[in-house]
């Protein structure tokens, strides 16, 4: 198995808020989970350009004209990009979005899984 670091490359447009992201790798693939509370499907885009996966959108206030007493939540436009390693099978990316949590599953390609070689020492 190739040990390719899966790392975020750009952190742009973060004027106040950007989603918190967890990335983990299993035997079969990578999973990115991003917290997008209050966003609807049409509020963000997930695009794949070559091996760059970009998540961008805007978190908008739901109540605009309210008299605010306490404001801890942050809002605004965001864009985050991640470099997908060569071992990923880009054709089989799956996404789910529920309760404000976006999950992107990227399986590893079969070729990579087979490339694992056991080395014996004498």
């Amino acid at each position: 198995m190739t040990l390719i670091e899966f790392y975020p490359m750009l952190r742009v447009g973060s004027n106040g808020w950007e989603p918190d992201v967890d990335i983990f790798e299993t035997k079969d693939g990578f999973v990115i989970s991003a917290e997008l509370p209050g966003l609807k499907k049409e509020d963000f885009d997930l695009t794949l350009d070559d091996d760059n996966l970009t998540l961008e959108g805007e978190k908008k206030r739901e109540d605009k004209n309210d008299n605010q007493k306490l404001g801890e939540r942050k809002f605004g436009k965001f864009s985050r990009s991640f470099v997908i390693p060569d071992s990923a099978n880009l054709k089989k990316i799956r996404t789910s979005f529920k309760d404000g949590l976006l999950k992107v599953s990227i399986p590893k390609s079969e070729v990579v899984k087979e490339r694992e070689i056991k080395v014996h020492f004498k």
Binding site: D66, Q68, K69, D99
Partner: peptide
């Protein structure tokens, strides 16, 4: 994170609990 706001008729508390 919590926002508290007030309208004419209500006090509204919005809390972010993504994934829960």
């Amino acid at each position: 994170c919590v926002d508290v706001s007030e309208t004419k008729d209500n006090v509204i508390i919005n809390t972010e609990i993504p994934g829960m």
